[in-house]
Simulated scan of single mutants.
Amino acid sequence: MHPLQQLVLLCSVICGVAVGSDASAQDRAAAAKFYRVVDGKADARTYNGYRRYHAGCNHCHGADGLGSTFASSLVDRLPGVESFRRVVRDGQRNGASVMKGFADDPNFAPYMDDIYAYLQARADGALGRGRPGRLEP
């Protein structure tokens, strides 16, 4: 094999590895997302999270997760999913601020990941304020 052919082959391999690693990084990032939003329309899980959030969480955490005078914004500082589940399940006390746990509430406990999907989409800017449209299955 001529040196020029070796160089072309080496460049091809390097480019292939670079493209492949970039694609896998994108795949990992997409897998870490709990939501799917296309053209402002949310998948069923995220849409249900919107509904569940506005059925109870918004009373303290504000419209669309923006926070209030006594509860933090969940859009500006969304915790990781495990911390989110723990706080929703067990509650949290932070100085004078107290959030009760919802482990036994059938309206919220089974839907923690749905609510997280909605808040993650809001935090990432994938969804704006207000009721999202729904993606067709």
Rank of each mutant, 00 (worst) to 15 (best):
H61S: 09
N48P: 00
A123P: 06
A96T: 13
G65Q: 01
D114P: 03
Q26T: 11
V98G: 06
G16A: 06
P132N: 04
A126S: 12
D64Y: 00
S12V: 10
N58F: 04
F70T: 14
D76R: 15
M99W: 04
V87Q: 06
S24D: 09
P110M: 04
S83T: 15
H54K: 05
R36F: 08
N94E: 12
A96E: 13
P137V: 08
A25V: 09
Q5S: 10
A103D: 12
N94W: 11
G128T: 12
F102A: 01
L9H: 00
L78H: 03
G49H: 03
A18N: 07
H2V: 01
A25K: 14
H61I: 09
D39V: 05
R85Q: 11
Y118E: 04
P110I: 04
Y35H: 14
Y116S: 04
F34T: 07
Q26V: 11
M112S: 00
G20A: 15
G16C: 05
R89P: 00
A126R: 03
A23S: 08
L9I: 06
V88W: 00
G80A: 13
V13R: 03
Y35K: 07
D22V: 11
A123F: 09
D39Y: 05
V13K: 00
D124R: 07
G67I: 09
G56E: 04
G101Y: 07
E136N: 11
A96N: 12
L10V: 12
V75D: 00
P79S: 06
Y111T: 01
G130T: 07
H61G: 07
L10D: 07
S97T: 10
Y53C: 02
A32P: 00
G20C: 11
A123M: 10
A123T: 13
L127N: 01
G133E: 05
Q92E: 13
M1C: 06
Q120P: 07
A63V: 12
M112V: 15
M1K: 05
Q6H: 05
K100P: 01
C15D: 02
R122V: 00
K33E: 14
C57E: 03
V13T: 03
R129A: 14
L78P: 02
P79V: 04
D90H: 12
Y35D: 04
A126H: 01
C15I: 09
V38I: 15
G16W: 05
A29I: 04
L78T: 03
R131H: 08
S21M: 10
G40W: 13
S12T: 15
G95F: 09
A44E: 14
K33D: 06
G16I: 06
D27K: 13
Y111D: 01
R89M: 05
A30C: 07
L4E: 15
G62R: 00
D39T: 09
D105Y: 11
R122L: 03
L78W: 02
Q5T: 11
L4S: 15
A44K: 12
G91H: 08
D90Q: 14
Y35I: 07
F84W: 14
N94Q: 13
Y35C: 06
A109L: 08
L66W: 02
R86P: 02
Q5R: 12
V13D: 03
D104M: 06
T69V: 14
T46M: 09
R28S: 14
F84G: 02
D113G: 07
L7T: 13
L78D: 01
D22T: 08
D90S: 13
A42F: 05
P137R: 15
V87G: 00
C11N: 13
D43K: 10
N48V: 02
A71L: 05
S72K: 13
G80L: 06
G95C: 09
G62Q: 01
